[in-house]
Each structure stands twice: as C-alpha cells, then as structure tokens.
C-alpha cells in the first residue's frame, strides 16, 4: 500500500487490472483510432459518470502527476470535482485547474482552449465509442466494417444530411479519421474542438467503461474530420464574445439570465476564461 488513506490499492484498481489496462493502452497507441476491447471493472461510480476515463487515468497515474479534471470545459462542475477528489484520495496526487500545469487532463466533452504540450496526456470519457453505432447497432457488423475499412455507410449518412439540411447536421461527437485509417468517435466534444485533435503534441487516450473499449491518438498524428470537397468541415462560430473575458476565439456557453429570454455568453473553459480575466485586471491596474 503506497501512502493513501482509503484501504484500497493505489489508484483504487488492483495491480493485475492495471497491468491489463496498461497493455491495452499500449496496443491502442500502436493502432491509432482502433477500439481495443478490455475487461471493464465495476468502479465506485456509475457507468456514464466517466468509468472508462477513470480506469484509464487510474492505470496511468502516479505520485508525480498533476491532475486536472474538467467536465463541460469547467473544473468546478460537480462530477469533475468528484473525480478529482477520488484521485486526490486514492492516488495521493496533486491536482490543478491550470491546463499548463497538468500532466494528465481527464475530460468530459471538451478539449482545453490552451494548446496542450508534449508529455501531457488527455484522457477522454467516452459514452459510445463506436462511430458506426447509430448506423449499425450490431457489434459483429461494425467490427467487420472497421476490419475492411468499409466506411461507405458513414459517407452516405453524412451525404443524406446535406441532401436534407444543406449541410452535415452533426455538431458534436463529429466523426474523424485517424492516420488515414480508422474512423473514430472523438467522444461528445463539440466539433469546434475537432481541429485541436489533429497533430496535437499531447497523447490522447479514450476510455469507454460500459462499452469496454480503449482507443488512442498518439502525439503528432493526423486526425481528419470527415467532410466532402463541396462541403468542407467547419466549426461553430458565435457573433457574441465572452461576457466575462471578452474572448472571441473560445467555445461559449449560453446562459439564460431572465424569463424574458435574455442571454449572456461565457467561455466554457473556466481556466482559459479565468486567466484572461486576470490578465485584463492586471492590465487595468497598470
């Protein structure tokens, strides 16, 4: 037992489980975008709360790490708080809200606005890992499609969107192709974040606990959002800027401020927004 107060093993999981997960992660890195099956363990939080990401983090984390956990881009979201305190307790790690200080960032639904660096690891919580699942519910079938690179149905689906709506009507969990081979779900991040995955210096690991799959994008790996020549991939834009920090380049959450429908827009990334607000205050004081 290495210095935690819980009565459970270091980082909660037993060593054999961690070894199994570690081997799975290495294979995931060697086959970018391919979903490696693994023997999911029941975790002390429910499926859907990030059990896949938590198992990935538990198998990689050590006492020298500095952990940041975000949900919806924010460090103070209830479940992010809960996961952070789980690892502070079971792994005795330092935690931070600052993206640049973290060695591991566990996330649900966002990629931080500040660019990640070499050596950092971004762990995504994934609800449904299979990009073809809505088109074909059977695992036996989708596994074959990946094996044969038979991705025609995905292109047909996207093209049907264009026929119906004049555009690809997917705004989050937008499918990507990794290293020109596997089609991958980036987890429900807004498509605004998709370009950040491409050639990112950080290692990106994806954990889906209930679905028992782990996959990865190594650093400096091509990640292309699917599109067509006549309908190129585009990200969301806002006419507004952040009401707190004035950012025009970040993903904005909409907050309803009155029952008359008044709204304000603020950064979803609380760390990015906080830094910008601090810089503004400093500037104003000088």
């Amino acid at each position: 037992m290495s210095g935690t107060e819980t009565g459970y093993n270091y980082a909660y999981l037993d060593e054999q489980t961690k070894r199994m997960l570690r081997r799975v992660i290495l294979k995931a890195v060697a086959i970018p975008g391919y979903q490696v099956p693994f023997g999911n363990r029941e975790m002390p939080m429910p499926h859907g709360w990030g059990t896949g990401g938590i198992q990935v983090t538990a198998s990689i984390i050590g006492p020298d790490d500095v952990l940041k956990v975000i949900d919806q881009g924010a460090d103070d979201t209830t479940n992010a708080v809960s996961i952070r305190s789980f690892f502070a307790k079971t792994a005795g790690v330092a935690t931070t809200t600052r993206t640049e200080e973290a060695t591991i960032v566990q996330t649900r639904h966002r990629i931080p606005e500040k660019p990640l660096k070499e050596g950092q690891i971004l762990v995504y919580q994934v609800p449904i890992p299979e990009p073809l699942r809505w088109l074909e519910p059977r695992e036996t079938e989708t596994r074959k499609m990946h094996a044969l690179s038979e991705y025609g149905i995905m292109h047909v689906r996207l093209y049907e969107d264009i026929a119906t709506h004049g555009r690809i009507a997917t705004s989050y969990d937008y499918p990507v192709q990794v290293n020109e081979r596997y089609i991958m779900r980036p987890s429900p991040i807004p498509k605004f974040d998709n370009p950040k995955m491409d050639m990112n210096p950080a290692l990106q690991l994806f954990g889906a606990g209930r679905e028992k799959r782990i996959y990865a994008v190594p650093p400096y790996t091509k990640v292309k959002s699917l599109d067509f020549d006549d309908h190129p991939f585009e990200v969301q834009r806002w006419d507004e800027s952040c009401a707190l920090c004035g950012a025009t380049d970040s993903f904005l959450d909409e907050i309803v401020t009155s029952d008359r429908g008044d709204r304000m827009f603020v950064c979803s990334d609380s760390d990015y927004c906080g830094d910008r607000q601090a810089a503004r205050r400093k500037e104003a004081a000088e």
Binding site: H47, G48, G73, H109, Y172, F192
Partner: peptide, 14 residues
C-alpha cells in the same frame, strides 16, 4: 441516468 449530468456543451453546439 447519466443524462442527468451536464450536457451544456453539446446542447449549445446543437
């Protein structure tokens, strides 16, 4: 039950 967790970002995207 995870549908109870925040989905602000995805909903905003939509």
């Amino acid at each position: 039950q995870h549908l109870k967790l925040p989905h602000y970002v995805d909903f905003q995207s939509e």
